[in-house]
């Protein structure tokens, strides 16, 4: 079974207070040198059957209508590993 990964991130112009809280905690924990952190969501989809253009188009549609809210978020779809 092939795996398709959908990454969802807040659009760059949208404030991400959760990412900021992580970033602010880093120096205290001894992790220096991180200027910015943005937090997002990753969906791993195990696809039944071939991951062809039609399957990817459906996944794209799924991401656009459900997995991401495109008012505030961007998403990327990629096939995991060599499977394709």
């Amino acid at each position: 079974m092939a795996r398709v990964v959908v990454d969802v991130m807040l659009k760059p112009e949208i404030l991400d207070p959760q990412g900021q809280a992580v970033q602010r905690a880093l120096p205290r924990l001894g992790f220096a040198g991180i200027a910015d952190v943005r937090q997002g969501k990753r969906f791993e989809l195990e696809v039944e059957g071939p991951v062809d253009d039609a399957a990817l188009a459906r996944i794209h549609e799924m991401a656009e209508t459900f997995l991401a809210n495109t008012v505030i978020e961007d998403f990327t779809v990629k096939v995991d590993g060599e499977a394709r």
């Binding site: 807040l10 949208i14 404030l15 207070p17 959760q18 809280a21 809210n69 008012v71 505030i72």
Partner: peptide, 9 residues
């Protein structure tokens, strides 16, 4: 529009 986590968390 949309609703997001409060800015102070």
């Amino acid at each position: 529009g949309a609703m997001l986590r409060n800015n102070h968390l």
